[in-house]
Design a protein around this nucleic acid. Structure first.
Lengths: 135, 135
DNA sequence: ATGACTGCAAAGACTTTGCATCTTT
DNA sequence: AAAGATGCAAAGTCTTTGCAGTCAT
């Protein structure tokens, strides 16, 4: 059996940042959070570890918004709201995101594909941006 | 009154390409389609016109997949399937994409935001890639 | 003529990667 | 010591943009 190492101080730190925020961060945001604590951290390391986490299934990519890929440590099914002004991403509480299993089957039948997941994103303007624009 | 020009041979050609395909193209794909017909077309022009169409509401962005922004001339509400192997994007027939108006209201109440739209994307493997992988 | 559109190439933004070095086991 | 992780900087990919020239009205 291969013994996978799967530990490093920096990896832990990166995971801690992403799993302790509800900001759905980008690589750079994580990097900025850690610079003070870990001055010799490299942005490449953040990218490499995010890639590892993604493959592990420890995090999920929410897609690219405003040019940056955004991540979520909460891999349970839920949907998101993205502000088109400031690109804040927030979780939507409740079961808005769920599809019946039948929906997957329907698509598979209808399109001849195999469905493995889905993503629901609502767009609009967040509270802060609404207020900001009223001034 | 301002008189908007809103015409150019190249703009028309670009719109014709995007509106005559069901591939949900990227800028580069459109460019490649037109190179033969219009040898002096520039990729920058494709990007600029796509940006115009987006602002016009003549096309919709489906988001960034595999690093490239993909577009749809069909702006009516419908959802999509994206193959995670080859990044083919196909339309899902039927009403899979609709939310009750109440859903928007629910999110607005719950999150304090203003919802303007949404996007539903299913992920998986397309027919071609399923077959390819069986060999 | 005027304002809009375009080609070209440079610049921008984000992400990936090669290689030497450092860590963990 | 061996395998893996990292820093650094270069390279890669996609997109935007400045400017001079072109096109439609």
């Amino acid at each position: 059996m291969e013994t996978k190492r799967n530990f490093s101080a920096k990896r832990e730190a990166i995971y801690k940042v992403i799993s302790s925020t509800n900001t759905h961060p980008s690589a750079e945001w994580i990097y900025d959070q850690l610079r003070q604590e870990i001055p010799d951290l490299s942005l490449g390391t953040v990218y490499r570890n995010l890639s590892v986490f993604k493959q592990n299934g420890k995090i999920k990519s929410l897609g690219v918004f405003n040019g940056q890929e955004r991540f979520d440590y909460d891999t349970s099914p839920h949907s998101h709201f993205v502000c088109e002004c400031c690109y804040e991403i927030i979780d939507i509480p409740g079961g808005v995101s769920f599809f019946e299993r039948n929906t997957y089957r329907y698509i598979e039948r209808e399109c001849g594909v195999h469905v493995e997941g889905h993503s629901i994103v609502f767009f609009g303007k967040c509270k802060k941006c609404i207020i900001k624009d009223q001034r």
